[in-house]
């Protein structure tokens, strides 16, 4: 019991240190002008962008509160951010009321998930045609 709580503590310390390091890294360096950021293997091999390309630049600009440039780097990331935050909240909420469950079912249910898949794959294709 005692050991478990220690392990949990150490785990959280390591995770937050790592997260802090990552945030600091993305805040201080621009992935466009420095080359110590990993690049997309899909783009490297095929020359086409994937749906996630530009996410690192988007995060850099987002950390500088530059929503416009962040949107230009990866519009999908910015659009999905509120949805992701809402999803995390709904996952963590303890004893959700029937109203919240209904809300969750309509926004995060089967239909919604297939819509998300369509959006991701559609975005993936369109961004390579229209150079988004």
């Amino acid at each position: 019991m005692q050991l478990d709580s220690w392990q949990a503590k150490i785990k959280w310390i390591v995770i937050s240190l790592l997260l802090g390091f990552i945030v600091l890294n993305y805040w201080s360096y621009n992935p466009e002008t420095t080359n110590h950021f990993p690049s997309c293997p899909f783009k490297l091999i095929t020359g086409y962008k994937c749906a996630g390309c530009g996410s690192q630049r988007a995060i850099h600009h987002l950390l500088h509160l530059n929503i416009g440039r962040s949107f230009k780097s990866n519009p999908l990331l910015i659009i999905s951010l509120p949805y992701i935050l809402m999803g995390i909240y709904l996952d963590l909420k303890k004893n959700p009321s029937p109203k919240i469950l209904q809300f969750r079912k309509s926004l995060y249910g089967t239909t919604a998930i297939f819509l998300i898949l369509t959006i991701i794959i559609g975005f993936w294709i369109i961004r390579n045609i229209c150079d988004l």
Binding site: L77, S80, G87, I88, I120
Partner: peptide, 16 residues
């Protein structure tokens, strides 16, 4: 747990 949020993050950041 549906892992939806985590899956979206993996799609956008690691491997589609």
């Amino acid at each position: 747990k549906t892992w939806l949020v985590e899956s979206i993050l993996v799609t956008l950041f690691c491997c589609l």
